[in-house]
């Protein structure tokens, strides 16, 4: 599907040229996220790390997986599942972040050590 309307590059050099640039960008982003991980950014550290990861993923999706081409069906398919990921996260966190104290995990800690044997038999 991807690449049907596109004039296929004919030479090996032409194929390498475009993709090496993407690869260089990906490695640069890798370096950036590694360096930034050691900078104390507080809670923004996670935002930055995930933002860079999203940028890398977008590069791969658009340029290696050919989603840059205007194919609405493929774009819809590729990004539809993200909507459902958002559903899962939003509603789960709607519970986790607002739960009353006695039902929060950890409130029974440490009633007993982690080495307590569970009683169930482990047969397959």
């Amino acid at each position: 599907m991807s690449g049907l309307g596109e004039a296929a590059p004919t030479g090996a050099a032409a194929i390498w040229r475009g993709r090496l640039a993407v690869w260089a960008a990906l490695l640069a982003l890798l370096g950036a996220t590694l360096a930034l991980a050691y900078v104390p950014l507080g809670r923004f550290g996670l935002v930055v790390a995930l933002g860079i990861a999203a940028a890398k993923a977008l590069l791969v999706v658009l340029l290696f997986m050919h989603l840059r081409k205007p194919d609405p069906l493929l774009r819809l398919t590729a990004f539809a599942s993200l909507v459902f990921v958002a559903f899962l996260l939003t509603l789960t966190f709607a519970d986790v972040l607002t739960r009353a104290a006695p039902t929060q995990p950890g409130t029974v800690l440490p009633r007993s050590g982690p080495d307590l044997p569970a009683t169930g038999q482990r047969a397959f």
């Binding site: 296929a8 194929i15 390498w16 993709r19 890798l30 340029l63 290696f64």
Partner: peptide, 15 residues
């Protein structure tokens, strides 16, 4: 990331 590069080139080369 590098393996993705070679895979992309392989797919393009096959086409």
């Amino acid at each position: 990331l590098t393996s993705s590069l070679t895979m992309a080139v392989a797919a393009e080369g096959a086409r």
